[in-house]
Amino acid sequence: MDAYLSDAELATAKTRLSAIEAMFSQRVVGQTDLRRSLMAGLLSRGHVLIESVPGLAKTTAAQTLALAVSGTFHRIQCTPDLMPNDIIGTQVYNQATGEMTTQLGPVHANIVLLDEINRSSAKTQSAMLEAMQEAQTTIGGVVHPLPKPFMVMATQNPIEEEGTYVLPEAQMDRFLMKQVITYPEPREELEVLERIDDGRLGADLEGDPISLEDLQELQEMARRVFIHRTIKTYIVDLVNTTRGAGPNPLPGFGTHVRVGASPRGGIALMQVAQALALMAGRNYAIPEDVKAMRHAILRHRLIRTYDAIADDVSVDGLIDAVFNAVPVP
C-alpha cells in the first residue's frame, strides 16, 4: 500500500472538501444525511440510491455537487417506456457520409441522476448494470468508457407503487448506499422560503469549484486512509453476523433475515469509513466511522423473511442488533 496521508495532504483535502461544502450549502438547506451520503459516495467511487418523497432537493443536490467539482451532469427521468438505448446511446445512420455514427447517451456524464429508477422496466434497469459496475457502455459492439469520475445517484418514491418495477437484488447490491431522506426541520423549511424570497436560492454560486483532477486526487486520498487490520476483522465479523454466523451469532436471526450482506457490504463499510475519516480530517479510520452510516450501507443488502415483513420487523433494527452483538475493537 502507498504511504499514509501526510499532514500537508490532509490540509489540501480539507481545503477542497470545504470548497465543495461551501458551494453545496448555497443551494441545499439542511439535508445533512443526503449531503454526507453524496460526499462519501463520491469519495468512495460508489453509487447512491436515495428513497424519499418528491420535493426534498435531490435533483438540486446532485446538480450542485456536479457544479462544485467542475463535472458534467445529466438527469434521466425513468418511465415505463424508457429503453436501454435512451440511456446508453445508439448508432444513427448519417445520410451525408453514408456511415453509422454513434450518439452517446446521457449516462456519459460525471454525475448522473436516475430519477424514479423503479419506474423503468427490468430491461432498462439491467442496461445500467454494466455502466455502474464496469464504468463503460457497449454500443454496436464497441466499448465506450464513461468519464472519470463517474457516480450514479438514483431515486425512488416509496409512496407510489403503480407502474413501478422492483429493483432486483443484483442491482441493489451495486449501490454503495441506500439513504432514506425525511422532511426537513421547520427552521430549515423557513430558511428555504427566505432564500427563495430574497433570490439567494436561484443566484449564481459563489466561490471557485475544484477541478475533476482535484476530485480524483481526493478519491485517491480516501483510498489511502489507514484502516487497521482489527477494524477490517470487525467489518468481517459484522458482515458474517448478518448471515447468521460471526463470533456471536444472534439467536433466531435466521427467522428475520433470509439473505445477509454480500462481500460488497464489507467493502462498502470499509470504503465509506475511509471516506468519512478523510472528511473528518483524519488519516486513519476508527470504529465509529464504520458505524456512522451502517443503516445506509446495509439496509438494502439484508433480505428479510416473509414473517419479518409481516411482523413489521425493521431492517434498521436488525442492523442495530448486529452491531450491538459484535464487540467493538
Results as ranks from 00 to 15, higher is better:
175 F>G: 08
128 M>G: 06
165 Y>L: 13
114 L>I: 11
96 A>Q: 15
141 G>C: 05
142 V>T: 15
106 P>D: 07
178 K>W: 06
58 K>Y: 02
105 G>M: 09
66 A>L: 08
142 V>Y: 03
90 T>H: 10
77 Q>N: 11
58 K>E: 04
167 L>S: 07
145 P>W: 08
146 L>G: 07
148 K>W: 02
177 M>Q: 14
69 V>G: 09
149 P>M: 12
138 T>K: 05
48 V>F: 02
147 P>S: 00
152 V>I: 15
134 E>P: 11
73 F>N: 03
103 Q>C: 06
168 P>I: 03
112 V>C: 07
118 N>A: 13
100 M>G: 00
118 N>S: 13
172 M>H: 07
112 V>R: 03
104 L>E: 03
142 V>H: 13
71 G>E: 04
47 H>E: 13
49 L>C: 12
142 V>P: 00
137 T>C: 04
82 L>T: 12
157 N>S: 01
54 P>G: 01
62 A>D: 03
129 L>Q: 05
165 Y>M: 12
59 T>E: 00
163 G>C: 04
60 T>Y: 00
154 A>V: 13
174 R>M: 06
74 H>R: 14
171 Q>K: 07
155 T>V: 07
169 E>Y: 11
66 A>C: 11
74 H>Y: 08
53 V>P: 01
90 T>E: 05
52 S>F: 01
150 F>E: 11
92 V>F: 03
142 V>D: 07
126 S>G: 05
58 K>V: 07
171 Q>S: 08
153 M>A: 15
102 T>W: 05
129 L>Y: 03
133 Q>N: 14
151 M>I: 05
81 D>C: 09
123 K>V: 09
110 N>Q: 02
134 E>N: 13
113 L>G: 13
138 T>S: 14
95 Q>H: 14
128 M>D: 11
52 S>T: 14
160 E>W: 04
152 V>H: 06
94 N>V: 08
155 T>H: 02
169 E>D: 15
174 R>K: 10
159 I>S: 02
140 G>K: 05
45 R>Q: 12
72 T>I: 10
149 P>C: 12
106 P>W: 05
162 E>L: 10
86 D>T: 09
91 Q>W: 01
168 P>K: 06
163 G>P: 04
102 T>G: 10
163 G>R: 01
72 T>M: 07
158 P>H: 01
77 Q>A: 10
66 A>P: 09
108 H>V: 08
81 D>F: 07
148 K>D: 15
83 M>H: 06
60 T>I: 03
160 E>C: 07
135 A>N: 13
133 Q>W: 08
123 K>W: 03
126 S>T: 06
